[in-house]
Design a binder for these strands. Structure first.
Lengths: 113, 113
DNA sequence: GCTATCAATGGACAGACGTCAATGGAACTG
DNA sequence: CAGTTCCATTGACGTCTGTCCATTGATAGC
């Protein structure tokens, strides 16, 4: 079988220096991507912006009319944000109040530089 | 038909103050979401990280072996990053060199706070 | 108890997304 | 010119995602 190696570069010089990417940075990139993905939707990013501008004072029933979406859909988005650690919620009686948990966004902001 | 309005809140007090979200901020959120979405994939975020740490010196043939993916798939991710204005490329002979166009990421970083 | 309200959950569906194999196109070599 | 190398594009495929509707859970007031 012995396939003859065909490593013929157009010029003698290599295209660029070899690139290494350590495992540690890979894992951090993975985590940052998770946060970015949760924020990578117009509805969710808007939700986060609304929440951080009305710290601790916004209940879901006030969020729903801001969008042209059903209440279950918004609930799903809020759940995604919660799963990503970007927001959290607190129940008071019938209502659920959401607020931003700033660590995740700060992390991403710092990573972006 | 005249459905009788059933606006009975559990308590007299409203759940929270009414929330407004201006159109201008909506549009900015939309743009930020586009950037975040492009970054919301582990492969793409890793690509960006590799590129910014080897400014202007990385050709595609060096990027491919960093991932367990086919060359067309990587090309597809690079295109997405280019479409989002996060990276750009330059051709030198056979090779294509990619580099980070930092404005978009800086914008998002600033927005995140 | 019963009823009303707010929020979360489950199921279903169309569309978007990530991936690959095959192909195409541009540029260099001999 | 033909052959090679590198990169982009196309088409196809399965999976994930966003959305809705209907329902359930939880809490409050009657």
């Amino acid at each position: 079988m012995a396939i003859t190696p065909k490593k013929k570069r157009p010029a003698g010089e290599p295209c660029c220096e070899p690139v290494v990417y350590p495992e540690v940075e890979r894992q951090e990139a993975q985590r940052m991507a998770t946060i970015a993905k949760a924020l990578g939707d117009p509805v969710r990013l808007t939700l986060v912006d609304v929440l951080r501008k009305h710290a601790g004072k916004v209940c879901v029933c006030e969020l729903v009319p801001l969008f042209d979406l059903s209440q279950p859909t918004l609930s799903h988005h809020l759940k995604k944000l919660r799963d990503a650690g970007i927001v959290d919620s607190e129940r008071r009686g019938l209502w659920a109040y959401y607020y931003v948990e700033p660590e995740a966004m700060e992390e991403l902001s710092a990573w972006l530089g």
